[in-house]
Design a binder for these strands. Structure first.
Lengths: 158, 158
DNA sequence: GTAAATCCTAGCAAAATACTAGGAAATTGG
DNA sequence: CCAATTTCCTAGTATTTTGCTAGGATTTAC
């Protein structure tokens, strides 16, 4: 009866890992879905869809054909965790409140109390994900894993 | 194809409004589900379930029988928006990462990069909801709505 | 030309969501 | 005691979302 909500889906969780992986391995040549899939233990076919979404969002570029794959579309320092998660999860705002949008219309906006609660939650999530940048994560990954081996992901879906 | 995730469900959104309503109207006598339902435009039967969850969480007490209803189980200043939302939504942590739990076991925890991302998001949401207290919301509600009329909620599900 | 890769659309089982429904149990007021 | 009012408890259910899988078309390197 009681499942937890407000969860990031596998799209966001897998996708962020995939992009960190890409940032680490695509220094010179494009990285294929197959290789990311192997290192990160994510279904190739599913990952394909995630990469497609990241491409549409302008975060990665693709190279088709043999020896093709993906590379970052911009420098890792110019991509935030928020950019990645929003590309995959849609809006990260836990409440869609029209009264908070610049052009939004809400009849009860003037007298709505909960609006301020939603606003603070929304802003808090946005701030948190936007201040985390991909280059920091790549650096942290190298620090945690100097040998360049990836952790065994078979048990961990995050 | 692209629906937004990371959303607070109606349980949390309706439930917080219901508890603010309860805090305003249960000063002396218990408030019935019917009256909250009417003011807040929430289905009686659904609200019943929400109140039951809030009761299990120890946030409200119930009085059965005619003229019964609900009252706050503690002072409004001792109930946070986080208490209410967690009672209705379960954990508010967007990622359940075993490596972040005190007793959690995760084989890849030592070398897991994304763990820190999830940690920061989780902490950020928790901090935001826990610093909002019910008495502040009641006060704000009175300020926005001096005549004691409730906004028309028929269009707004938040 | 063939193998390796992305691209694109569709389908689908399982789970979650947002309710509705039926009735039992407790309490009050007459 | 009775009838009305109210909470309490369990179940059912239509719709949507999630987390994939499947098939094949297209592009490119060698």
């Amino acid at each position: 009866m009681e499942g937890d909500k407000l969860k990031l889906s596998t799209k966001g969780r897998y996708g962020l890992r995939a992009l960190i992986d890409l940032a680490q391995y695509s220094k010179d040549a494009p990285v294929s879905i197959m290789s990311i899939s192997a290192r990160q233990d994510i279904s190739e076919r599913y990952l394909e869809q995630l990469m497609s979404m990241l491409k549409k969002a302008g975060l990665v570029r693709s190279v088709r054909g043999a020896n093709g794959g993906y590379i970052l579309a911009k420098d890792a320092k110019d991509i935030s965790a928020g950019d990645v998660l929003r590309a995959l999860e849609g809006s990260l705002e836990p409440v869609d409140c029209p009264g908070l949008e610049p052009e939004g219309v809400c009849r009860s906006a003037d007298t709505c109390v909960t609006k301020y609660v939603w606003k603070r939650i929304n802003e808090s999530v946005s701030r948190a994900v936007d201040e985390i940048r991909l280059d920091q994560l790549v650096e942290e990954s190298r620090r945690l894993n100097p040998e360049g081996e990836e952790p065994d992901r078979s048990e961990c879906k995050n």
